[in-house]
Simulated assay, not measured.
Amino acid sequence: MCDNPSPARNNRPVPPGPSPDIAHAGFGSAQPQGAAASPGQPGPTLIGWPRQLTWSDFRDIQNRPRGESEDARISMGFRPGRVRVVEEASEHRLGEMEFEMVLNAAGSWAVVSAKTAELLAHEQGHFDIVGLCYRDLVAEARTLRGRSRNRLLLAMREHDQRADSLTREYDTQTEHGRNQANQQAWQRQIAACRQSGMQLTAPPLNAAE
Rank of each mutant, 00 (worst) to 15 (best):
R73N: 05
D171W: 06
L154M: 11
E169Q: 14
I190V: 15
S90V: 02
V85E: 04
L205S: 11
H176C: 05
V102M: 00
R147D: 10
Q195R: 08
G67C: 11
D3N: 10
V102T: 06
S90R: 11
R64Q: 12
L103N: 08
R93D: 03
D128G: 10
P39Q: 06
R168W: 10
T45F: 04
P203G: 04
L152Y: 14
A25R: 13
A72C: 08
A105E: 05
A202I: 10
A89G: 05
A106D: 13
D21Q: 04
W55R: 04
V130C: 04
P50W: 05
G43D: 00
I129R: 10
Y134V: 15
L119R: 01
S56G: 11
G67W: 10
G34P: 02
R142P: 02
P42Q: 08
L166Q: 13
F27T: 13
L103G: 02
P80T: 15
R194C: 08
A8L: 03
L53Q: 07
Q33F: 15
R59D: 06
D160K: 15
E123G: 01
N150P: 02
L154K: 14
L137P: 03
P20F: 12
N10P: 03
R194M: 09
M198H: 08
A110E: 07
G43F: 08
D57H: 09
R59N: 13
A141P: 05
A105V: 06
A192Y: 00
G26S: 14
H92S: 06
G197P: 02
A36R: 10
Q183C: 04
Q184P: 00
R147L: 14
A117L: 13
E91F: 14
Q180W: 05
R9H: 07
I61G: 00
L46Y: 06
E87R: 14
F27N: 07
D160F: 09
M97C: 05
A192W: 01
R142E: 01
L120M: 00
Q187N: 15
A36D: 08
W55I: 02
A25D: 15
R82I: 12
P16A: 09
R79V: 12
A141N: 01
D171C: 09
L154Q: 12
S113N: 02
N4P: 03
Q180L: 09
V85M: 13
W186Y: 09
Q189N: 02
S75F: 07
A72G: 06
G95F: 08
R84K: 13
P42T: 06
C193M: 00
A117I: 08
R79P: 03
L119F: 00
D136R: 05
N11G: 13
P32T: 12
